[in-house]
Design a protein around this nucleic acid. Structure first.
Lengths: 116, 116
DNA sequence: ACTACATTTGCACAGTTGTTCAAATGATAA
DNA sequence: TTATCATTTGAACAACTGTGCAAATGTAGT
């Protein structure tokens, strides 16, 4: 993986060291990547955007996202595991909502970025 | 894909309609998803964060990210296609830089979000 | 106990992704 | 031209991802 395919190439060691020292460490970058990956699926994004508007049950989300209940449930589990959504049980139903409204800001900032 | 597995379940049609009408359309959500997917890989994130600091050539980026030159080049192509990075040719070298500094804000906002 | 039903879960499968390898470009210098 | 070298590209491959199906779980009512 990390073999020195670059051994012949000249690179600027000073620049490289400077960048390396300023850069986030691998762990932080991995956390960023995991977060972005979690919200980079169309179904999950629809779920998130819906839950920002209001609390919804699994079946409502299936109707809104246009995928099977099973698929929604799978995606909700991923979002729960990543602490992006939470749920309350009421009888047979599960009502899902957003954990941290912060995510709304992030999506809006990206929307601005895209529409340029 | 869109079969009515949900036909038996009761869902709240009023809520669903309300959310559907407020929600971004599929095309916008897809754009969001594509953007997030583009920046959700660890190697690409390192490249982006490095280029935010300063302009770098392919070989420098390979050294910084610790992957092969070929792998970096593949990732740079993805970032070019998505208009996230650009490059200038100088002799044999290609110097890459960030297209839109906006992306720095996005990453920083997510970093804040994560560190809570 | 039984039935009904919302949700979850495990499995299988197709589609996607990131990497490496080897070959191709393209540019400089001799 | 030939050689050298930075970068790009295409193919192949393993690993991962999102979905639907079917079975399981859990809850409410009879």
């Amino acid at each position: 993986m990390t073999e020195d395919t670059c051994s012949v190439n000249i690179f600027d060691p000073e620049k490289v060291e400077k960048v390396k020292s300023v850069l986030s460490d691998d762990e932080d970058t991995l956390k960023l990547a995991v977060f972005f990956k979690t919200i980079s699926d169309q179904t999950r994004l629809k779920i998130i955007q819906s839950l920002i508007i209001e609390e919804l049950c699994v079946c409502d989300l299936a109707e809104i996202t246009n995928v099977s209940i099973s698929a929604v449930s799978h995606q909700l589990r991923i979002l729960r595991d990543k602490n992006i959504v939470k749920y309350r049980k009421q009888g047979k139903m599960a009502y899902y909502s957003i954990v941290d409204e912060h995510i709304d800001q992030i999506i809006n900032l990206v929307k601005e970025h895209i529409s340029e």
